[in-house]
Design a protein around this nucleic acid. Structure first.
Length: 476
RNA sequence: GGGCCAGUAGCUCAGUUGGCAGAGCAACGGCCUUUUAAGCCGUGGGUCGAAGGUUCGAAUCCUUCCUGGCUCACCA
């Protein structure tokens, strides 16, 4: 069979040669042996079995060195003709970089001080039919790194580190919330009405019900149904899907933490978000240069004061749209035909956001731009809400949840009108309103973008570095 | 979607003014029993992202397209 390169052809021939001699190139394996990280701690003279992928080889006439890699690390093995036998050495020399073997033998220390297994027995475990990326430079091409992530994590240790850090951060969040008595739940990804945010959804279709469905843009409305249902502490860590652009900070599917706690207001979520992030940072350990030291900061800042401080221009939530546009234009922010909220958001993005480096809770969002939040009792203009900014990125969003079914209906209807004018699928979620009519306790909720949090804590410069398989255009 | 940049061997990269397609690693054949980016001798490997154009001659210049990166736009 012809393949796309010469080396792959040679490996196919070697595969046939193995089969021809009765060696199964893909056997099952019942004994994983010891992780290399553990085996490296053994004293000289102890017997050990390790399994792994051959990452490097140094062949000599009657002996050979190699490094085996498993998920814990690498360990050197040494195969001598007089210890392992001529057959084992001969077979080993026919193997390729990338093949898997298991070896048994005695641990010893080489002349240069490296713990090594003196092989007495070797099992062939799996054949690689394609050559690995180069050992020294690794895999640099970003397209290849993202498309063939398995090669990236195989040969680029730092790539694996970012992605394993992600696992640790998520694990730490789960532990913390479970310790506090929060229940982890899973709510629908396939939804009839994509609610809980204002983004363009992906569409799909259910055959048996012959009905259109959307991939969720947020789990919020389902989690709050659970508050109605008596779940006072819930959270979900899951994927949201937004049919929008791709950038170093946006992937169309991304992971969100949403947490809800009955009988609290949004100030509770300030404390909780800080605790979650500090504990995740602590669990991460050494080896990373975070984009920001998250141990300081965490001040509350008012949106309008921030804008005034950084632009010198006084914006007010009571300004008319025309006034806002005029002020925005004076700051070189293009006016467009936007809503008041968008104009302010643009001014904020252009002149303030980048400067919010250490963690800061931004408050003062208008109630009318926060359809799922309760407005402050003082004047009704502002929502009881904050957005958490770190390193110039929005990391979290939280508010005291709107539990008045009548106000919620008004907000939904206004929002649906706005969405449909923008051509975004919308609708009033009547089932959610019915749930609210049964009574929802006062509560607060928090959303944290996990991908962006991982970026901040690890110092990753692109969201693609912290997502195993980021979205790319299909090949072909 | 716009702007800028990139795509050459399996991988990492050179390639001058338009004049025979190159190196290192990897592979193949030898030598080599403590090497570790092992070493030494030798060999093979290319749709230069794709298509078209200019030219005696194109990896190189022009056009279009594909893919990616960065960035802007979009985006709670």
């Amino acid at each position: 069979m012809e393949t796309d390169n010469q080396q792959a052809d040679i490996r196919r021939e070697k595969l046939d040669s193995l089969k021809g001699r009765g060696i199964d190139p893909y056997p099952s394996c019942g004994d994983p042996g010891t992780d290399t990280s553990e085996a490296l701690k053994l004293d000289d003279g102890q017997q050990v079995r390790i399994s792994g992928r051959i990452m490097s080889r140094r062949l000599m006439g009657k002996a050979a060195f190699a490094h085996l890699q498993d998920s814990a690390g690498r360990m050197q093995v040494y195969i001598r003709k007089d210890k392992a036998g001529e057959d084992v050495l001969g077979l080993f020399k026919e193997l390729d970089l990338g093949d898997f073997i298991g070896v048994e033998g005695e641990v010893f220390t080489t002349r240069t001080g490296e713990k090594t297994v003196m092989v007495s027995k070797m099992d062939f475990l799996s054949k690689a039919l394609r050559p690995m990326p180069e050992k020294w430079h690794g895999l640099r091409d970003k397209e290849l790194r993202y498309r063939k992530r398995y090669l990236d994590t195989l040969v680029n240790a730092e790539s694996s580190e970012f992605l394993r850090a992600r696992s640790r951060i998520i694990g730490s969040i789960r532990n913390l919330l479970e310790e506090k008595g929060f229940a982890e739940v899973e709510t629908p990804i396939l939804q009839n009405i994509p609610g809980g945010a204002a983004a363009r959804p992906f569409t799909t279709h259910h055959n048996v019900y012959d009905t259109g469905l959307y991939l969720r843009i947020a789990p919020e409305l389902y989690l709050k149904r659970l508050l109605v249902g008596g779940w006072d502490r819930v959270f979900e860590i899951g994927r949201n899907f937004r049919n929008e652009g791709v950038s170093t900070r946006h992937n169309p599917e991304f992971t969100m933490l949403e947490v809800y706690r009955s009988y609290t207001d949004y100030t509770y979520m300030m404390d909780l978000s800080r605790e979650i992030i500090l504990s995740a940072a602590a669990k991460l350990g050494e080896g990373f240069t975070p984009a920001v030291d998250v141990s300081s900061g965490w001040k509350k800042e008012n949106l309008w004061e921030l804008i005034r401080k950084h632009t010198g221009v006084e914006f007010s939530p009571e300004d008319s749209l025309e006034e806002l546009k005029k002020k925005a234009a004076s700051l070189d922010v293009p006016p467009g035909k936007d809503s008041a909220a968008k104009v302010v958001d643009r001014v904020f993005s252009a002149h303030v956001q980048d400067k919010l480096i250490e963690p800061v809770f931004v408050t003062g969002y208008p109630a009318k731009d926060s359809p799922l939040a309760k407005s402050s009792p003082d004047n009704g203009i502002f929502a009881e809400r904050f957005e958490l900014y770190i390193n110039g990125q929005e990391i979290g969003n939280a508010y005291t949840e709107q539990n008045d079914p009548l106000i919620q209906r008004e907000m939904f209807e206004a929002q649906a009108g706005e969405k449909s004018r923008e051509g975004i699928p919308s609708g009033v979620d009547e089932e959610y309103l019915e749930a609210l009519e049964h009574g929802m306790p006062p509560a607060s909720g928090l959303g944290i973008g996990i991908d962006r949090l991982v970026m901040v804590l690890t110092g990753a410069e692109s969201i693609r570095e912290v997502i195993l398989f980021p979205m790319l255009r299909p090949e072909g």
